[in-house]
Simulated assay, not measured.
Amino acid sequence: MAYVLVPPIVDQVQMGTDRFAARYLLPQGITLIMRQDGSVYERTYPSQDELNAAADFWLGGHRHPLTDPQRDALVSAGYADFIHEE
């Protein structure tokens, strides 16, 4: 059985001073980053240094196939709602 991670998405207001544009929310994918110690945290705009230092990461806005150890780590970190069977 294969598992797929679909990271969370939040709706964000566009940057700028135009009040008309502020009425529209844009979906923004959240990147999940696993530290070397196995803990997982979220980042909307991760830096390249964060991604290079990570044990593993899953970019927001994409579907990622998971191995069993990855799935177990994400479930224990509280991201079970974003893991789907395929």
Score class of each variant (00 low, 15 high):
Met15Arg: 13
Glu85His: 11
Met15Ile: 10
Tyr24Phe: 14
Arg35Glu: 08
Leu59Phe: 13
Glu86Val: 08
Gly29Phe: 10
Asp56Tyr: 12
Arg71Ile: 03
Phe82His: 14
Glu42Trp: 06
Pro46Asn: 01
Leu25Lys: 12
Phe57Trp: 15
Ala53Cys: 00
Pro8Ile: 03
Asp68Val: 11
Glu86Asp: 06
Ser76Leu: 15
Thr17Ile: 13
Pro27Arg: 07
Val6Ile: 12
Met15Gln: 14
His84Asn: 00
Met34Lys: 02
Leu51Gly: 04
Ala54Gln: 06
His84Gln: 10
Pro46His: 02
Ile83Tyr: 08
Asp11Asn: 12
Gln14Gly: 14
Leu5Ala: 05
Asp72Asn: 15
Arg63His: 11
Ala21Asp: 12
Gly61Ala: 10
Arg23Ile: 00
Leu5Arg: 05
Asp72Met: 11
Gln12Trp: 05
Thr31Pro: 03
Asp81Val: 00
Ser39Trp: 01
His62Lys: 15
Asp72His: 15
Ile30Thr: 07
Pro65Cys: 05
Met15Ala: 14
Glu86Ser: 03
Ile83Pro: 11
Arg43Ser: 15
Thr31Asn: 03
Gln70Pro: 07
Met15Gly: 06
Trp58Cys: 08
Gly78Cys: 08
Gly29Lys: 09
Ala54Trp: 04
Pro69Ser: 11
Arg19Cys: 01
Asp18Tyr: 09
Ile83Arg: 08
Arg43Asp: 14
Ala55Pro: 09
Asp68Ile: 11
Tyr41Met: 07
His84Val: 06
Asp81Lys: 13
Tyr45His: 09
His64Gln: 10
Phe82Glu: 04
Leu26Asn: 10
Pro8Thr: 03
Val75Met: 10
Tyr79Ala: 08
Asp11His: 13
Thr67Ser: 15
Val13Phe: 02
Leu26Met: 12
Leu74Glu: 11
Glu42Arg: 13
Asp56Leu: 13
Arg35Thr: 04
Glu42His: 07
Pro65Asn: 09
Val6Asn: 08
Gly60Asp: 06
Gly78His: 13
Gly61His: 09
Glu86His: 01
Arg35Ile: 00
Pro69Asp: 14
Asp11Pro: 00
Leu51Gln: 07
Ile33Arg: 04
Arg19Tyr: 08
Gly38Thr: 04
Phe82Tyr: 15
Arg71Ser: 10
Leu74Tyr: 08
Leu74Thr: 12
Ser39Met: 07
Thr44Gly: 03
Glu86Met: 00
Arg19Gly: 02
Leu5Met: 05
Ala80Leu: 07
Val40Lys: 03
Ala77Ser: 15
Gln28Trp: 08
Tyr45Asn: 14
Asp18Gly: 06
His62Ile: 07
His62Cys: 15
Gly38His: 05
Asn52Pro: 00
Gln36Pro: 01
Gln36Ala: 14
Gly16Val: 11
Pro7Ile: 03
Val75Arg: 13
Asp18Leu: 09
Thr67Arg: 08
Gln70Asp: 05
His62Phe: 15
Gly78Val: 09
Ala73Leu: 06
Asp11Trp: 11
Val40Thr: 03
Asp49Ile: 01
Leu51Met: 10
Leu51Thr: 05
Val10Pro: 04
Pro8Asp: 08
Val6Gln: 08
Thr17Cys: 09
Tyr24Val: 11
Arg23Thr: 01
Phe20Lys: 11
Ala77Cys: 10
Gln12Lys: 12
Ile30Met: 10
Asp56Phe: 09
Arg23Gly: 12
Phe20Ile: 07
Arg71Asp: 06
Gly60Asn: 06
